[in-house]
Computed example of a mutant assay.
Amino acid sequence: MRSTHDLAVLDQSQGGGALPHAPRLLVIANPLAGTGAGRRLLQRTLDVLRAEGCRLLIAEARTPEEIAALAGGTGPEDADAVVAAGGDGTINAAANGLMQRDFPLPLGVLAVGTANVMALEMGLKRAPRALAAPFLTGRLRPVTPIETPTGHALLMVGAGFDGAVVATLAARPALKWRWGKLAYLPPVLDRIRHYDWPEISVRIDGVPHRAHGVVAVNGRLYGGAFRAVPEGDITRPGMHVVLLGGRGVAALLRQGAALAAGRLDRLSDVRILPARELVIEGPAGLAIQADGDPLPSAPAVLRVADRSLNLIWP
C-alpha cells in the first residue's frame, strides 16, 4: 500500500501539487562543475535556504553515474525534492536517476555550473535569492524529457559537429574546470580543422530526411541563451528537430550568426520540424551528444518520453 506521501508524489508527477513549507532538500553538488565563483554562489544560496527554514542534506557526486545513483536512491521518506547543483550535465544526470523511480521526487535546479541552459529555459537568474526563491514558493511544472539510447535528455540532443565538439571536450575534462564557458573554444577550433561534415540520414516520425547537422530541441534554446525554436516550450510534451543544411565552416558561421540573432528559422537551408520520434540512421560512428555529454554514436533512436518529471519552477 502506498503512503499518503507517495500519493502526493504521484499527483505531482502528473503536473500538480507543490512542495511543502520548509521542504527537506537533498542537494547533490558536483564539485567539478563551474568555477570558484559558482561555488561561492552555491554557498550563498544554501545560506539563504537555511535561513528560510529549508532542511538541507548536502551530498557531493563527481560523475553522472554517482549523481544518478544518489537521485534515484532518494525516496519520499528521505526528502521532499532532489536539487541538482551544477551545470546542465549535473541536472540531466539527476533527472536520469529520478526517472528510474516509479514515482520520482521533484527536481530543483541550482545553476552554478559551466553551462546552464536549463536555468535560462526556466528564467532563473544567477543570484542567491533568485536561485532560492523557487524552493520557497514550491511551484511545480512538468517537463517531458527526450528518451535516448542510454536514458533521458531534458534539453537537447545534437548529432554531427556539436556532437564531435562535445566528444573532444569530454576527452579533456580539466578544461571546464579551468576555463569555464571558454572551455568549448579549443574543441570548436579543433573540430573546425578536422571535421569532414558528412551527410546525416534521419527519419522524423517515419519520414526520411538528410542534413549536415541535426539537433533535437526540447524547449526553445540551444547552446546558451540562443533561441533555436521560437515556438518551443519545455513544459509542453514534444520536441522539435532542427535540420541544418550546408556544409563546411562558411555554413557553420552563417548559421551560428543567425542563431545568435534569433533568426535561425529564417534561413533557407534550415528546417525545423515537430517530432515525436527521431531516428539518426547514420553514418555509422557519427558523434551524438545529449545535454553536453557524449552519447553512443549513430545509429540511435530518440523519442518523447511517455512520462514527465516535475521541476521546481520560479
Score class of each variant (00 low, 15 high):
Arg2Gln: 12
Asp6His: 14
Asp6Arg: 14
Leu7Asn: 12
Leu7Ser: 11
Leu10Val: 11
Gln12Glu: 14
Gly16Tyr: 12
Gly17Asn: 10
Gly17Leu: 10
Ala22Asp: 13
Arg24Lys: 10
Arg24Trp: 04
Leu26Gln: 05
Val27Thr: 04
Asn30Thr: 06
Asn30Glu: 11
Ala33Leu: 07
Gly36Trp: 06
Ala37Met: 10
Arg39Gln: 15
Arg44Ser: 08
Asp47Gly: 02
Leu49Gly: 01
Cys54Gly: 01
Arg55Glu: 13
Pro64Cys: 04
Ile67Asp: 03
Ile67Lys: 09
Ile67Phe: 00
Ala69Trp: 03
Ala69Cys: 09
Leu70Ile: 06
Ala71Cys: 08
Gly73Asn: 11
Pro76Ser: 13
Pro76Asp: 11
Glu77Cys: 11
Asp78Ala: 15
Gly87Leu: 06
Asp88Val: 07
Ile91Phe: 13
Asn92Ala: 07
Ala94Lys: 04
Ala95Gln: 06
Asn96Thr: 08
Leu98Val: 10
Arg101Asn: 12
Gly108Ala: 08
Gly108Lys: 01
Val109Ala: 03
Val109Leu: 05
Gly113Glu: 02
Ala115Cys: 14
Ala115Thr: 13
Leu120Gly: 04
Gly123Met: 05
Leu124Phe: 11
Arg126Leu: 04
Leu131Asp: 01
Leu131Gln: 02
Thr137Arg: 14
Pro142Phe: 02
Pro145Phe: 13
Thr148Gly: 00
His152Phe: 15
Val157Asn: 05
Gly158Asp: 06
Gly158Trp: 00
Gly158Met: 02
Gly158Ala: 15
Asp162Asn: 10
Gly163Ala: 11
Ala164Gly: 09
Val166Leu: 07
Ala170Cys: 11
Lys176His: 11
Trp177His: 13
Leu185Arg: 09
Arg193Tyr: 06
His194Ile: 03
Tyr195Asp: 03
Pro198Lys: 08
Pro198Leu: 06
Ile200Phe: 00
Ser201Arg: 12
Val202Asp: 01
Ile204Met: 01
Gly206Thr: 12
Val214Ile: 15
Ala216Ser: 09
Val217Tyr: 01
Val217Pro: 07
Val217Leu: 05
Val217Lys: 01
Asn218Met: 09
Gly219Val: 10
Gly219Met: 09
Arg220Gly: 03
Tyr222Trp: 14
Tyr222Lys: 00
Gly223Gln: 10
Phe226Lys: 08
Phe226Ile: 09
Pro230Gly: 08
Pro230Gln: 09
Gly232Pro: 08
Asp233Cys: 12
Thr235Ala: 14
Arg236Phe: 14
Arg236Ser: 05
Met239Pro: 05
Val241Tyr: 03
Val241Gln: 07
Leu244Tyr: 05
Arg247Trp: 06
Arg247Lys: 15
Gly248His: 02
Ala250His: 01
Ala251Glu: 00
Leu253Gly: 01
Arg254Ser: 12
Gln255His: 05
Gly256His: 06
Ala257Ser: 14
Ala257Glu: 12
Ala258Gln: 07
Leu259Gln: 03
Leu259Tyr: 02
Ala260Gln: 11
Ala261Glu: 15
Asp265Arg: 14
Arg266Thr: 15
Leu267Ser: 07
Ser268Pro: 10
Ser268Met: 01
Asp269Met: 01
Arg271His: 07
Ala275Tyr: 09
Arg276Lys: 13
Arg276Tyr: 00
Ile280Cys: 03
Pro283Gln: 06
Ala284Asp: 13
Ala284Ile: 12
Ala284Val: 14
Gly285Asn: 12
Ala287Ser: 14
Gln289Val: 02
Gly292Thr: 02
Pro294Tyr: 11
Pro294His: 12
Asp306Leu: 03
Ser308Asp: 10
Ile312Pro: 04
Pro314His: 05
